[in-house]
């Protein structure tokens, strides 16, 4: 599969790019200010360069949470306008699936005793612009799916990554992140817009992962 992965300099892309490269042809991109080496510099503007970026791509893995750093204005702009440009170009190019990497932190204000699943509404804090931006990125993706322009898998990952602190009850391992992305790329069980929550199986696990186990059966042993 020809994959485009955004926010190449981000921690999430650093986790998934290596393992995914063994089974897919990868195209990595990031904003010009972040791009180095083989990474394609692209500011995801409305124009031919974004069209070229997605040409020949089968699926996109978009880092929708903490893929970028910058001022609040820059983060809102990236996760709304630039996301829209990317998805619009992708749909025009015939990209079939987008895996949006979001975060379970969108539910972090709910008490831990609550059985939070994909059927709960997200509850981002306005003052945490990273979370607000992730919420807006989900919104943009969902509307493209609603219009049947592309299939979107919205993977909300636990946090932090690879923590050994047992008090991090929503933590997720790097291996599980990679496996979840891989499974989301190939699953044939998904609807047009599919939220999936993924975190590691740990003591006092905070979030329910039954949907992931059902729709991404290759993860079942890890959940």
């Amino acid at each position: 599969m020809n994959l485009l992965i955004t926010s190449a300099a981000s921690a999430t892309t650093q986790v998934i790019a290596g393992p995914l490269s063994s089974s897919h042809e990868l195209r990595l991109t990031d904003l010009a200010r972040n791009a180095t080496g083989e990474v394609i510099a692209n500011d995801l503007d409305h124009g031919s360069r974004t069209d070229e970026l997605v040409s020949g791509i089968d699926a996109i893995v978009n880092i929708g949470y903490q893929g970028q750093t910058g001022s609040p204005n820059e983060l809102i702009d990236y996760h709304t306008r630039r996301m829209y440009n990317l998805l619009w170009a992708a749909c025009e190019a015939g990209v079939k699936r987008v895996v949006n990497i979001s975060t379970l932190r969108l539910f972090q204000d709910h008490e831990e005793n609550l059985v939070v699943t994909e059927k709960w509404r997200t509850n981002p804090r306005a003052e945490d612009v990273d979370l607000l931006a992730a919420h807006m990125a989900e919104y943009v993706c969902r509307e493209f799916a609603r219009d049947r322009m592309v299939q979107v898998v919205n993977l909300r990952l636990g946090w932090p990554f690879d923590s050994s602190d047992t008090t991090d009850t929503a933590r997720i391992s790097a291996d599980l992140i990679t496996d979840a992305v891989e499974a989301a790329l190939v699953s044939e069980e998904l609807i047009q817009w599919q939220d999936i929550h993924v975190q590691s199986k740990v003591e006092n696990q905070r979030y329910i992962t039954n949907t992931a186990a059902r729709l991404l059966p290759s993860l079942a042993g890890s959940l």
Binding site: I76, R125, A126, M136, V140
Partner: peptide, 14 residues
């Protein structure tokens, strides 16, 4: 709609 959603989030939290 995105603008309205931003309003809603701020409204809920502030």
């Amino acid at each position: 709609a995105l603008g309205s959603e931003i309003c809603r989030v701020f409204s809920e939290h502030h």
